[in-house]
Amino acid sequence: MNSRRRFLNASALGAATITAAACTPSGTADHKPSTVTATLLLTAQALQTLSHVCERLVPGASEAGVSVYVSQQLARDAASNLLMLQYLGIAHEDHVSFYRAGLSGIEGASQSLFQKSCCSLSSSETDSLVKNLLADEFTDWSGAPSSFFLFVIRADACDVVYGTKQGFENIGMPHMAHIVPTEEW
């Protein structure tokens, strides 16, 4: 978790790079450690927006590293990316633009409704923004519907909060792994 926090802080400073080797598990056929450096594909502000909204949707998502998770996966190729988005009819080459458009849409909605950045909204303001977006009520939104975008990032947040051994234990579900993954994601 510490390394994730360090990364979060670093990314908050602006454009940054992440090393794919730091986050890929070893010993699996198609995930050999790589020294390839992946360019960070989302801006610091977009990552903060992601973290902030996911935290309201799924408490614990920010601490669990949802923004690192999403940015790491976006840097991977189609055959190794682990995002749930790949099930949802969005081609891999369009994943980055999907997240960029959705996150800038949220920021735009926040500015329009509250005249402030999403990350500085109070809890109740964030709740009403989320409610508005879930109901597709914000009309100045382009691309995939806002409710769909929130469904996707909520699922990402659920992955990091509930999809790990710790996440299972936190809800009292026996994990019973055959093979515990060497990395959570």
Binding site: A29, A78, A79, L82, G163, H175, A177, H178, V180
Partner: peptide, 29 residues
């Protein structure tokens, strides 16, 4: 078309399971 797979690649994770999914050219729907 895809990579080799061994039983030991099948780690118990719904997140990692996604790498077993289609990784070839996108299919439009």
């Amino acid at each position: 078309a895809g990579p080799p797979r061994q039983l030991q690649d099948l780690t118990s994770s719904q997140i990692w399971a996604r790498r077993l999914k289609w990784g070839g050219a996108p299919v439009l729907e």
